[in-house]
Design a protein around this nucleic acid. Structure first.
Lengths: 113, 113
DNA sequence: CAACTTGTCAACTGTTCAGTTGTAGAGTAA
DNA sequence: TTACTCTACAACTGAACAGTTGACAAGTTG
């Protein structure tokens, strides 16, 4: 029972973390920050959505410790604070590839279930 | 531009994969399947939600190739098909710990920003 | 100082989705 | 054969959330 209670809470925390990465706009933001720190304005130009929207997503990522920020006059530079998120993305891509390969194999063998 | 277009589609696929793990019930299902294959009924008992709900989540995980299933009379046994999802969970737990440690350090140093 | 730029926040809206309710089909036992 | 168990699917509902609109504060420039 105690183990069960902890598992529920843990699952919730883990799910929330995954949820931060379960949005294409946020993934693209993180990808854009992979090379260099960028301002909200630069991200707005690069991602092609509104500045308020970018700011909102960055706020979520910052509060979770995934990005860090630095004020610079009127500008704020954001940079990656936890770069293991890229390892997560790569692992997820691996899983997608394996799944596609499995489907491909199945179709090639003419086995449809 | 071409790079940009691919990045949008990739981000979408990656986000969808993360989304499958961004739900506490599905995380608990995967955790329950970590040891041995289980039936829908057994998972229903263990997780404590309805059978139809469990079946629905399992359907999503199965279509994504994360779990596999095997019919056995009236029962269906589900098992983990892609166990790298546990590596993903562990990495995410690492990120959570780092974040909490960072907050702890900040509070200990009496620096609140 | 006023005008402008930059970024954050609140409120709103429409879409998505987890959980629930209901049901039907497959398999098994009596 | 009927009755029961097990599972998957459809339809529904309310909560969550991504994107948008509006507003405001901080910083910079002329």
């Amino acid at each position: 029972m105690i183990q069960n209670a902890m598992s529920v809470a843990m699952a919730e925390v883990i799910a929330q973390r995954f949820h931060l990465l379960a949005d294409p706009t946020r993934i693209r933001i993180l990808d854009a920050l992979r090379g260099n720190p960028l301002t909200v304005g630069a991200l707005t130009d690069e991602i092609g959505t509104s500045q308020q929207n970018i700011s909102k997503h960055l706020g979520l990522l910052h509060r979770a410790g995934i990005v860090a920020r630095e004020k610079d006059g009127v500008c704020v530079h954001y940079r990656i604070a936890d770069d293991t998120v890229f390892e997560l993305c790569e692992e997820v891509c691996g899983g997608i590839h394996r799944h596609l390969n499995g489907l491909q194999t199945m179709m090639d063998e003419g086995v449809a279930r």
